[in-house]
């Protein structure tokens, strides 16, 4: 259990309120018309929405893991955080090299990183 306070208050209640507020902002970001805001940055509303959602998802993720899952503030938090981060390498591989590749990557990549070079 948590042995600390957040702004002098119970950490679980504070975390709960924080998560609720962030979720409200998330839903509002989708519902509000952000077209003009997006145009001022020379982009589309969808891109702005995606950035807002991504930015909000990060603190929500950390708040749940650190406070509700006790990865912060407990004696064993350090080693368990490292344990939880162990799949990070796999996640980076999957996201960067599978998720963010393009369908024509096999033929559209520069010669130096395609099969057939270096005698392979």
């Amino acid at each position: 259990m948590a042995h600390y306070k957040i702004f002098g208050q119970d950490p679980y209640w504070m975390n709960f309120f924080g998560l609720m507020i962030l979720t409200l902002i998330e839903v509002a970001a989708v519902g509000l018309d952000l077209t003009e805001f997006a145009q001022s940055y020379d982009t589309t509303e969808k891109v702005v929405t995606l950035w807002i959602l991504t930015i909000i998802a990060i603190p929500k993720f950390i708040m749940i893991a650190a406070i509700f899952m006790h990865l912060y503030g407990d004696e064993d938090s350090g080693i368990l955080t490292l344990t939880a981060l162990f799949p990070a390498f796999f996640i980076i591989i999957m996201v960067l090299f599978v998720g963010l590749t393009h369908p024509d990557a096999a033929s559209g990549l520069p010669d130096w990183c395609r099969p057939g070079n270096y005698g392979l």
Binding site: P87, F90, M94, V95, V98, G99, L100, T101
Partner: peptide, 13 residues
């Protein structure tokens, strides 16, 4: 986490 990462990377792709 690895199971869901596979699904997420597929979705991103």
């Amino acid at each position: 986490m690895m199971v869901f990462t596979s699904l997420f990377s597929t979705y991103m792709r």
